[in-house]
Design a protein around this nucleic acid. Structure first.
Length: 271
DNA sequence: AAAAGCCCCTGGATGC
DNA sequence: TGCATCCAGGGGCTTT
């Protein structure tokens, strides 16, 4: 579920509130994708210094370590002064002096992992291969172009892979390609400068717009206060198979790429 | 090195 | 109402 915009919206919704908090207790529910990796009591007494994001990972900087959090497909966080009794899918609680942070994740593809720092082998393994931050200055057209030149896979799948650019998931990949007028099936290396430039711009615009509207809420996503996002209402192609393209009226098509659905307009996205 | 498949897990929607 | 099937916002790991 959560792509970069949802993760960023989540981060923004509690970073200020938790900054400076002292961890008092940890409650673990059912196992997530990966184990925490340490005795939870290691966290007790540590202070939460900052909340950052790298791709779809949230990074909680602690006094003496780093907590990596991932929301997987169905995860969401809640942060409130007092956490209610844990429900069936509440699998991680971080009780602090300033409130409780809770991970709710029905499918349990999410994870919370403790690392000593970003140089910790565990952190390097998860973060080391990530591509450029699409909303950051390091995401530049020439680099993007060069990276795409080395890929023969369909551009949609290269975007999803996350080693060229991070944070673009299944919704925003389709949306960005639509905005750029590029067919999702085109081999990445066949894109010329102009197309790459358009795609670069489209990715940034789509992600920024999604953050601004609180992300997309398809099922359960909400920020830390339980507020849903609205970007799905302005999706041009995602989830609109068979419906008329807003620009040209052609029926939006859906195909399978790497066991994921892709949506595009056959007329507006010719190459 | 890159690409393609396979899984992990639960729940909701759809069809019979 | 019950049951089977398919699909879902991710991504690490293994195999080609």
């Amino acid at each position: 579920m959560p792509e970069l915009p949802e993760v960023e919206v989540t981060r923004l919704s509690f970073a200020d509130a938790i900054r400076g908090a002292i961890i008092e207790h940890v409650r673990l529910g059912k196992p997530l994708r990966w184990a925490l990796g340490v005795d939870p009591r290691i966290l007790y007494g540590q202070q939460v210094l900052e909340v950052r994001r790298r791709g779809k990972y949230l990074l909680l900087d602690l006094t003496d370590g780093l907590l990596l959090m991932h929301l997987g497909m169905s995860g969401s966080l809640a942060f409130r002064a007092e956490l209610p009794l844990a429900g069936t899918h509440d699998h991680f609680d971080l009780i602090t002096s300033q409130g409780g942070l809770r991970l709710h994740d029905p499918r349990r593809f999410g994870a919370v992992v403790f690392c000593l720092g970003e140089d910790d082998p565990r952190a390097r393994k998860l973060l080391g291969g990530l591509g450029a931050e699409p909303l950051g200055d390091e995401f530049r057209v020439p680099d993007f172009h060069r990276a795409l030149q080395g890929r023969r896979a369909p551009v949609k799948q290269v975007l999803l892979a996350g080693d060229v650019v991070v944070g673009v998931g299944n919704i925003y990949a389709s949306e960005a390609l639509y905005k750029a007028g590029i067919r999702p099936t085109v081999a990445a290396h066949r894109l010329g400068r102009v197309r790459v430039q358009r795609l670069h711009r489209a990715i940034r615009e789509v992600l920024a717009a999604a953050v601004a509207t609180g992300g997309s809420t398809l099922r359960n996503f909400s920020n830390v206060h339980g507020e849903a996002g609205h970007y799905q209402q302005q999706a041009m192609v995602y989830g609109r198979a068979g419906q008329p393209c807003y620009q040209c009226g052609s029926a939006v098509k859906t195909i399978r790429q790497g066991q994921r659905s892709t949506f595009f307009c056959p007329r507006c996205q010719r190459l």
